[in-house]
Design a protein around this nucleic acid. Structure first.
Lengths: 244, 244
DNA sequence: GGAGGCTCGTGCAAGTTTTCACAAAGCCTG
DNA sequence: CAGGCTTTGTGAAAACTTGCACGAGCCTCC
C-alpha cells in the first residue's frame, strides 16, 4: 500500500514522468521535423514517408519512425504520415498550441538584435518585455518594445504569465539575471552568456554559446589539418607499399 | 599486404582517426571547461580538482576526469590539475593556438549583431569579412568591417585563409549561402538559419536555432504544467491513501 | 478478393555516453 | 620513512541512443 502510494506520487510529481516520457534526443529533433513538415505543408505536400522526412532532416529513416512513434501511431503503413495531422500532433506535444511570452534581460547588442529579430513573435514567442539595468537603455524602444528598468521584471512576468526568460546580458551579469528571473517566477531560461548558470531544481536552462560552437568547429578544422599533413608525410611510404 | 595498406590509408585519411579519437560529447564540453579554467586562472587559482571543476561546470566529477583523460594524464593524484597547464592543453586540443578567421554571410539584423558583438575577435575568431547580396547593404560598415558584395566571398576566403563561415541569412537563402561557402573553400559552417543544410562530406556544420531552443523549453514548460494539473487532480486521492 | 508492393511500428543488437567504484599514486605529518 | 588522507585514472556496469531487420497493416491492380 505504501509503495503504491509513493509510486503514484512519484508518477505524478516528477516532471519527467507525467505520461509516456519522450527521450531528450527525440525532443530535440521534434522541432526540426516540425519545421520541415510545416514548410512541406505550405508547399502543398499532404503526405510524407519517414524516408522523405529523414532525407530532409538529414537523419536515418528508422530514427524518424521511432521518434514519431513516441507521439503515438499516427502513420499509415504502406502510405506514410499525413503532414497536417503530424504537424498538429508535434505542436501539441511541444506545447505550441498557445503562445509563450518571453522576457528578455539585457538590452545591449544582443538583446536588441533578439527583440528586433521578427522570428520571436512570428514563431509563437511574443516578447512580453525587455529589461536592463542601465538608465541609458531604459525607455529606448527596440523591436517595438520599450526597455524597462530591472525592477519591473516581476511585474512583467506576472502580468503576462511569462515562463520563459532570455538572458542577453554580459556574462558577468548572467547569474544575477538568472536569480532575478527565477525569483520572478520564470521556470525556463535561454542563456546566451558564456557562463554555466546555477538554478534551483525545476528550472530548465538551455545555453546558446557562440564561442563554444566556434571552438567545436575549430577542433574539427584542426583535426582535418592534422590529418592532411600526416597524409602528406606518409604518402611516399604508402605509395611504395601499394606498388610492392 | 593489401589489407595492411588500405588500413593504413584509412587511418591516415579519415578525419576522425588521426590520433586518439576524442568522443563528440567530450569535445562539446571542453570549451566549457576551458572557459571556467581561464576564469579561475585569472582569478588567481592555480590548481583545481575534478570535483571543483565539475561543480562549476554543473557535471559529474567522474565525467570531468574521463573527459580530461582523453587529453592525456595531466592531473596529479591527491592534488588535482594545474589550471594553467590544463588551459594550455585544452587550447592545444581545440586548435586554439592561432586565430581562425571567419566570414559572415548576410548583413541583416543578425549578421550586424554578430559583427558588432565584440566576442568574435576577442575569442580568437576575427571577422575576415561580411558579404551580402543586397546592394543597399554593401559598403555600409558594421563592427568596423565593410560589407562587401557576394562575389567577393571567394577572394576573402583565399586572402585570409578562412575556413569557418557563418550563415546569417534568412532561411530561404541559407542553402545557397552554404553552397557558395563550400565552393569558396570553407570547410566549417555555423548556421543560424532554421534550415537543415546539405553539404558535401568533409564539411562540418553546426546549427544554432533559436526556435528549436525555445520549442524545447516549451516542451518542458508544457510538461510541468501537465504534471502540476494532474497533481492537483489526484491530490485528494493521494491524501486519503496516505492517511489510511 | 488475392497477390504484390510499399511503409509503418518495434524488438533487438550495436554503439555511445554516463556513472560507479576502486586501485594506484602523490602529498603531508609526525 | 611509514601511515593516513586526498584525488586521479580507468575498468566495468548502467543508461541512453542509434540502426537494422522484419512482421504487420494498408493500398492498388489485376
Amino acid at each position: 500500500m505504501k509503495t503504491c502510494t509513493s509510486l503514484l506520487l512519484f508518477e505524478v510529481m516528477s516532471p519527467h514522468r507525467t505520461r509516456r516520457r519522450i527521450p531528450d534526443a527525440t525532443v530535440s529533433r521534434l522541432p526540426i521535423y516540425l519545421q520541415i513538415l510545416t514548410a512541406q505543408f505550405e508547399a502543398g505536400v499532404s503526405s510524407m514517408s519517414s524516408e522523405d522526412l529523414a532525407g530532409l532532416a538529414g537523419v536515418n529513416a528508422a530514427k524518424v519512425r521511432k521518434d514519431l512513434s513516441y507521439l503515438g501511431s499516427y502513420g499509415t503503413r504502406g502510405v506514410g504520415y499525413e503532414v497536417q495531422y503530424l504537424v498538429y500532433q508535434i505542436r501539441h506535444e511541444l506545447g505550441l498550441e498557445h503562445d509563450w511570452h518571453v522576457v528578455i534581460v539585457g538590452a545591449g547588442n544582443l538583446g536588441q538584435a533578439l527583440a528586433g529579430y521578427g522570428g520571436f513573435a512570428d514563431r509563437g514567442y511574443p516578447v512580453a518585455g525587455i529589461v536592463d539595468v542601465s538608465p541609458d537603455k531604459v525607455d529606448t524602444v527596440v523591436g517595438g518594445v520599450r526597455v524597462r528598468p530591472l525592477e519591473d521584471l516581476h511585474q512583467i512576468v506576472s502580468a503576462k504569465n511569462v515562463s520563459i526568460g532570455v538572458i542577453a546580458t554580459p556574462s558577468s551579469a548572467a547569474q544575477e539575471a538568472a536569480d532575478l528571473l527565477v525569483r520572478a517566477g520564470v521556470t525556463s531560461i535561454l542563456n546566451f552568456a558564456s557562463v554555466v548558470l546555477s538554478v534551483p531544481l525545476g528550472v530548465t536552462v538551455r545555453k546558446v554559446d557562440l564561442a563554444v560552437e566556434l571552438q567545436i568547429l575549430s577542433y574539427h578544422e584542426q583535426r582535418r589539418a592534422a590529418a592532411a599533413s600526416s597524409l602528406r608525410a606518409v604518402s611516399g611510404e604508402a605509395g611504395r607499399s601499394a606498388s610492392a
